[in-house]
Every structure is written in C-alpha cells, then in structure tokens.
C-alpha cells in the first residue's frame, strides 16, 4: 500500500514523458551522432584482429554502444526540479505531503527515464547492427542475469548520486559548478569516455574503487563477459553497498539541509 503512491508517480511520469515522444526521439538521434564519430574513432584505434587493454575491436565498439545507452538512463546529474524546489521554497509543499522526498523524485526520474530508455534501445539498435558479427553478446546466461541486475542497480546508484549533487542547492546559490563535475568528471570516472582498463594501472585501480565505475564500467564488463561469477557477485555487492552508503549520506545531508531551509513564498 505504502509503495502504491510512488508507483502512481512513476506511472504519471511515464505518461508525461511518453507524450513528448518526439522530444525523446530527437534527443536520442542528436545524441547518437557523437556515437557515430566515437565508433569511427575506435574503428581506427583498434584494427581488425588487434586488441587494446584486452579488448578486441568488436568488444570496444560494443562497450561504447552499451555504455551510451546506460549513460542515458543512469548517469548522475544535477536534477533541476530538486534544486529549484529548494531554492524557490516550493519544497515546503512536498514537506506537507505524506511522502519521502527522495523516493518521490526517484519515482519521477524512473518514470521519465523508462520511455527514454526504450526509445533509446531503438536508436542504438542500428549501431549494433552496423557492427555486424563483431557485436559482442553476453557469453552466458549468468552474464545476461548479471548485466540485468547491475543495470538496475546502476540506475539506483546513479539516482543516489543525482540526489546528493542536487541537495547541494541547500548551500549553494548556483549549482553550475556541481553540474560541471557531473558533466565532465563523472563521465570520465564512470567509463563513458574511455574503458577504465585503458588508463595506466594505478589510475584504473583508483577509479575502479569509486562508485562512478559501478554505474557504467562494471555493468559493461559484466555484459562483455570480462568478469566471472565471483567477480559479478562481488561487483553487485559493491553496487548495493555504495547505494546503502549514499542513501545514509543523503539522509544525513537532507536533515542538515532542512535545518537551513527557509520557505519564503506566500
């Protein structure tokens, strides 16, 4: 019963997002252009039969298509609705409702990303086809299951980071600086720009310890079968641990933020 209201919020967000189908298609098509160039670039970097950091041409190209799609549905960002509600005082209306503010926005984001993710599959499918036989499929049922579970957890993890970044509005007049970190640093640390295994070993090891790597790099590794049964279980446990840690951190920051919050509307 308690979850029904959040499910309803998600459903309403799905309907709203679905009513802007053309916007989603346009966004994804424009977003797909960089993917064409990225694939052409990697086609030149990794020739047929060559390997780079243990990945063949097909695996590298598949990696970028899979992470591009995942990035669209799970990437952490500064969520404008949250920052504006905090800054403009509209948060007070949410505080009066019998709801958890973090869960409410998770339901909204989930609902808005679902149609986007489905349309996105249609947009990235031609790229997968363009690779032809080089396209890498998960090598086992375990890899499929692991990828599905890690993709779901990466969405939740991505949201915890989104919520964390957005709560900065309690303290900051402008969240542009935080948005810059989300736009430039996180994609690099998550493996959207390069597979982390391409970095020099100490840097790669350090990046893999951060939560960002668990949003894109780890699910892509699972998809490509680059990690086995135990590593998949360990990676999923790490994702869950990061979610729990960020959830606790967010709850603390939320309480601290509420102490500073002053609604000025009338």
């Amino acid at each position: 019963m308690h979850w029904r209201k959040y499910a309803l919020v998600t459903w309403l967000a799905v309907r709203e997002a679905a009513s802007y189908r053309l916007n989603h298609i346009l966004s994804f098509v424009v977003g797909a252009v960089p993917l064409i160039a990225m694939l052409l670039l990697w086609d030149k970097v990794v020739g047929a039969g060559e390997k780079i950091a243990g990945m063949g041409r097909g695996e590298v190209l598949t990696y970028f298509i899979v992470t591009r799609w995942l990035y669209e549905i799970a990437a952490p960002t500064v969520w404008w609705d949250i920052t504006s509600e905090i800054r403009e005082g509209d948060l007070v209306f949410h505080l009066l409702r019998p709801q958890n503010y973090g869960l409410y926005h998770f339901a909204v984001i989930l609902g808005s990303k679902l149609p986007y993710g489905i349309i996105g599959l249609g947009v990235v499918a031609p790229f997968a086809l363009s690779i032809g036989q080089s396209w890498a499929w998960p090598p086992s049922a375990l890899a499929w299951l692991g990828f599905g579970a890690s993709a779901l957890l990466s969405m939740v993890l991505g949201y915890q980071l989104t919520f964390l970044l957005s709560l900065s509005a309690f303290w900051l007049e402008e969240t542009d600086g935080v948005a810059l970190i989300a736009d430039y640093v996180i994609p690099l640390a998550a493996g959207a720009v390069l597979p982390l295994s391409l970095f020099p070993k100490p840097i790669a090891a350090a990046l893999e310890m951060l939560p960002f790597a668990k949003i894109l790099f780890f699910p892509a590794q699972v998809y490509l079968g680059m990690v086995g049964g135990k590593a998949i279980a360990a990676g999923l446990a790490e994702q869950a641990a990061w979610i729990a840690a960020l959830w606790a951190l967010n709850a603390w920051i939320w309480r601290m933020g509420l102490r500073r919050f002053r609604a000025v509307g009338g």
Partner: peptide, 16 residues
C-alpha cells in the same frame, strides 16, 4: 575541465 578531459582522452589513447 573540458580541456583536461579532452587531453586525458587522447593522451590515454596515445599510450596504446
């Protein structure tokens, strides 16, 4: 940051 990201991207490729 953008310039740094671009340099890191290509410098990492030139390692390989």
């Amino acid at each position: 940051l953008w310039l740094g990201t671009a340099l890191v991207f290509f410098e990492t490729l030139f390692l390989h």
